[in-house]
Design a protein around this nucleic acid. Structure first.
Lengths: 178, 178
DNA sequence: TATAATTTTCAGAAATTTCTGAAAATTAAG
DNA sequence: CTTAATTTTCAGAAATTTCTGAAAATTATA
């Protein structure tokens, strides 16, 4: 498994962006490679292509499986596990989006819900709680919206995303359907 | 500056979430503290309240200023710099959203644009480029959409986010306005 | 201009995250 | 059951990120 320089560049870039998208470098690289690769790859091939240890590949695949971003296959007469990227690019994006929503919003919503149960003991604390409530309201709205988008049919999601500034016009129509 | 246990919990949590939201622990803590604090704070107060070094505060404030998440103030008769969170919670969220769009999408779009200029040298590479094109198309759409949302007036954004599953119905109306 | 107050910088320390590779565990085949 | 193939685990190593604190730079005041 030798990577073309194109593939190399793509894979390395995904490795570097990985941490911004929620996974580590090698997990990013593995996902990138499996994405542009049509044939399933086994762990040894991944390790060799990416020049990383066998153990690291094992951990990375475990994580990618937890995200449901890869699929396990078996080839006849071969005991090794083979992997491909799971689903279409859109499926992958949806999965990452959904997982990030969970990791980036839910813990905070949960904490804020807790903190807001307590009665403020003084003026200072009351003012702090007002702000926390604002943060909570915003994050909850975001969370629900992200959820709505996740559940939208691809057709509708595509339509929405392509609206551009047409969104305002459409919103102006709300409640006015003839 | 002693923090109440409420404030403490809020601040520590923001520190921990920081890395998921795009900044480091202490930057997250500083932003959290400035958010629930009505009075402007100076660097020494921040260092003392968060139990971090003066140098770290300076670097953190620099970063928060780069994000435009804090505002500099001066108190009469005091040479120190004082800071507050900039704008409303919504303003802050918009800023973070916008900044993350830049960091998480733009570099990848730029690389893919580059890679897709090259002619594929074989079947394997052609297939890889197809996938890269799919990734590009999706990320560009996302980028444009994120931009559209950023630019939306708060009133419209709120309306959109509150639509819930009503989005589908509204989209069905598109092009059918009487 | 000299001095004092304040902020910034940055080399190295500390903390955290990621990675390796050998050993242990699991799985399948004979 | 035994052996061989394969995968997983995880302690410690390596890499990376964050943080400290003292020195340098900047800014304001007298």
């Amino acid at each position: 498994m030798k990577l073309t320089s194109q593939a190399q560049a793509f894979v390395l870039h995904f490795g570097e962006m990985g941490s911004r998208w929620g996974f580590n470098r090698t997990v990013g690289q593995m996902l990138a490679l499996l994405t542009i690769q049509s044939e399933p790859l086994n762990a040894d091939q991944l390790a060799q292509a990416l020049k990383i240890s066998r153990g690291n590949v094992s951990m990375g695949l475990k994580e990618l499986q937890a995200w449901r971003l890869v699929e396990l296959h078996h080839l006849p007469g071969d005991r090794k596990d083979y992997f491909t990227a799971a689903g279409s690019i859109w499926d992958m994006a949806r999965t990452v989006f959904e997982e990030r929503r969970k990791r980036e919003l839910d813990p905070t919503l949960s904490l804020l819900r807790q903190l807001l149960l307590n009665d403020p003991q003084d003026e200072q604390e009351a003012r702090a709680q007002e702000k926390m409530q604002e943060v909570y309201d915003l994050l909850e709205l975001l969370d629900r919206f992200a959820n709505t988008l996740s559940r939208l049919e691809q057709k509708d999601l595509l339509k929405l995303m392509k609206l551009g500034s047409g969104i305002s016009k459409l919103l102006a129509l709300k409640g006015k359907k003839s």
